[in-house]
Each structure stands twice: as structure tokens, then as C-alpha cells.
Design a binder for these strands. Structure first.
Lengths: 213, 213
DNA sequence: TATACACTAACATCAAAATGTGATACCTCC
DNA sequence: GGAGGTATCACATTTTGATGTTAGTGTATA
């Protein structure tokens, strides 16, 4: 089995050393770099011309730049590394900020070393692992939304018109596409605007693109 | 420890009975209903006025209605149940369809019974668990997109104008909001359109809402 | 310092959109 | 069979949007 190379960025010395000892003492892993902030981590990467880690364990609450803020910079230097967040924060905002920045796994600090090891292995194999509470928040992101207000139902024909507008067509082009007169298009649009309580193409497009229709 | 009530919907008799035996033989769990299709599952729920399961293990490939198609109907009768998908499919389309329908966990069928048990426990505690390969696809949904083409950078002032348009304001209203003349607004918009190679508010709004700016 | 560029603004023009009224025709539902 | 809704179209008006040119002012950078 190949060894998995790691880096650890964590400011709490207790946690940091615990991780270092745990992974350092396991021949399956090799801890290449340990730092207590994003800034020092990047410096160390520059200084030592060492092999690059495959996986990075990254805290969020750090002196200086936060872990999340640091992700873009880290990914620039380590484009192939997988980033595992390891943090006490469980609020959706931070979770999604981290994932959107490019983290591929997110663990709470209560996670046992064994589970962290499992996460590292999974990530190394191209998978991922998230703490249960985090995973729940992530799946809930997808679950049926509370319906962004009454889907003021438009008729089929009205939806044809809406589609034309969203496609960037002028009234004239919509008329041609649907083979009706431009005045009919105007009439439809007036009714649509009234039904939705709007008064410009812009608002209509926003609603559609936001999935509110 | 409270017993966790389960239902199983799975057409493959081997898998079904294996699950039934495993969970049935563990006093921590109670298997209330077992069915081989969504239709028969719902019938059984109606027929037997039994306690409702907290957690449902649901296959996707089923005779008749697919597991995913069945989720909305199931959630109507079991609004409080947590649905764990258990399936061979690993394509993003099915994963996201299931999650969007309201599933709260997604396991591949290779998952060991012990891991399935872990998933059930996690879900029962209000968390979630996904197979590593599934979890990876889910986090990748969030990860930085391949940058939908050059982020043609607009200036701060231009972004102010864009914001106004996206907010559904007319040129006149934007001018008032930014305390500049309407001609200046026009001038900015002309430059913005040129920079982005577009020629209408509609296209601009579409780009912004799609996060291409 | 000279060049480039962002922001501001006025003036102008044509195309398009927003809004209104009125009218015919076709459904469906009571 | 009449009431109400949808779809169709015409005609008309006002407002907005899209595009262009020109130009003064400030700032940053080569």
C-alpha cells in the first residue's frame, strides 16, 4: 500500500500534535508539513522544496487568515491536493463556504482519530467523508425547498412567451417563433406581468432563472 | 436505547432478506414493513394500521415506480420518515434526483451491513451518511466550477450598475440610487455590454444569476 | 510627462418595451 | 345559454433601452 502524504494546518498545539503523532506513527501515512497558520504553511511550502502533500487537514479558526480564506491560495500552490476541513464550526455558512472554495471533506473536531483516518483514506481513494451532522446539512441543501411562494400558475401559452423572453428574444422574434402577431405577444406579456406583479423583462428573467416559476 | 423502526423496500430477494435478517436480529432495530415495490409498500402502510417507520431503506431500481419517483408519495404518508437510498446506481443524475426529492442519505449496494447500520444510526440521530464515492460527487457539486469562461472583470462602479439592473431598476432609478445622471448610467451600460459582448439587460441578468460574473 | 483608462455627462436617434382599450373567437362549467 | 377565462389581433401612446459621438476630470502607470 502506498503511503499517503499529509499536511496539517492547525493552531491548537494539542490537536496539532495529536494528529501529528497519530499519523506520524502510522507507516501508511507520512506527515510532510505542519503549520499553525495558512501564512506559515505557504511559507514552508515555498521554503522547503519538498514533495507536495496529497491531503491537507485544515482548521478554520486560525491566526491571521482563516482556513476558508486560505483555500484559494492553497489550491493555487497545491492544485492536486485534497482539502479536509477539521473544525469546531458546524454552521451552514462556513460549511458551504468551505465546500464552495474547494474543500472536499468536512469534519467536526469531535471526530475520533480513527474516523479522521477513515476520512483521509476515503479522500485518498477519490471519495469523501463528512461528519454525520455536516452530511445532513449538505443533503438538506438539496431537499425540497419550502416552495418560494405560490407558483402563480401561468398558462401553457404564457409559458411559451416567458420562454421566449428568457431566451433573449424580442417581442417580434417571439411572435415569429410562435407564429402569432406581435400584438398578441404584447397582450400575453401584459397579462403575465399583471399575474406576477412585475413590470419588466428583467424581473421576469430573474424569477425564472431563480427557479421561482 | 430506543429501538429504531425501519421499513425496507427492495425487490432483490437476496438483499431484502439479508437486510431483514440483519436488522431483525438486532434488538436495537425493529423492521416494521418490508416490500418489493413502492406500490406494495404504500398498500401495506394503508392496510396495516401499524406504527410508522422512522427510517426507510429504499432501492431505486424497482418493478413499477422507481424509488426516486416514489419518494414524493412516500413522504406524503410518512412525512417524518428519513429515507436512505440503497442502490447500485452511482450516477450524479440519480443521486441528485434522490436528494432533491427528499432522500437524506445515499448508499451504494456494496456498502457492508455494518456501514448500513452506521448510516441508519447516524440518520436516526439527525445526521446523515453517504458512501464515500457518493459523498465526493455531492461535495463536487459545490466546488469551484471550471469558471464559465473568463470572468471579464468589471470595475466597481460597473458592478454597481449591474447590481441595479439585476435588482430590476430602470436606468432612471439606477441614476437616482447612485446619484449620477442617467446619461452616465447609459454610458456605463454601453461599456458593460461591450465588455461582456451582450446587448440587453436580459442577458446581463442571466449571467449574473448564473454566477458567471 | 505622456498615455491609458475610469468616471462623469450632454446630446441625439432608432428600436423595443410597457401599458391601455377594444374586439372576435373558442372553451368549459354551471 | 350565458359567464368567465384564454387566445388571438389591431391600434395607439409613452417610457425605456440600446447605441453612438464627444468631452472634461481625475488617477495611475509606463
Amino acid at each position: 500500500m502506498e503511503t499517503i502524504t499529509l499536511a496539517i494546518v492547525e493552531d491548537d498545539p494539542v490537536v496539532r500534535e495529536s494528529l501529528q503523532t497519530f499519523f506520524g506513527g502510522n507507516p501508511q501515512f507520512e506527515v510532510l508539513t505542519v503549520a499553525s497558520s495558512v501564512e506559515t504553511f505557504l511559507q514552508k511550502l515555498d521554503a522547503e522544496a519538498q514533495p507536495l502533500p496529497e491531503i491537507l487537514l485544515l482548521d478554520i479558526q486560525l491566526p491571521g487568515m482563516s482556513g476558508i480564506e486560505g483555500i484559494p491560495g492553497i489550491r493555487e500552490r497545491l492544485p492536486d491536493a485534497n482539502i479536509i476541513m477539521l473544525t469546531t464550526f458546524e454552521d451552514s455558512e462556513k460549511i458551504f463556504a468551505a465546500l464552495c472554495a474547494g474543500a472536499c471533506s468536512y469534519l467536526t473536531k469531535q471526530t475520533s482519530l480513527l474516523k479522521i483516518r477513515e476520512a483521509v483514506l476515503n479522500v485518498s481513494r477519490g471519495g469523501s467523508y463528512m461528519s454525520p451532522s455536516i452530511a445532513r446539512k449538505v443533503v438538506e441543501y438539496f431537499s425540497p425547498k419550502p416552495k418560494k411562494q405560490a407558483n402563480t400558475t401561468l398558462t401553457d401559452r404564457q409559458m411559451d412567451i416567458v420562454q421566449g423572453i428568457v431566451d433573449g428574444l424580442s417581442y417580434k422574434m417571439i411572435a415569429a417563433r410562435l407564429d402569432i402577431s406581435i400584438d398578441t405577444v404584447r397582450s400575453h406579456i401584459m397579462h403575465i406581468y399583471r399575474a406576477l406583479n412585475i413590470n419588466s423583462k428583467g424581473e421576469l428573467i430573474k424569477r425564472v432563472v431563480n427557479g421561482e416559476l
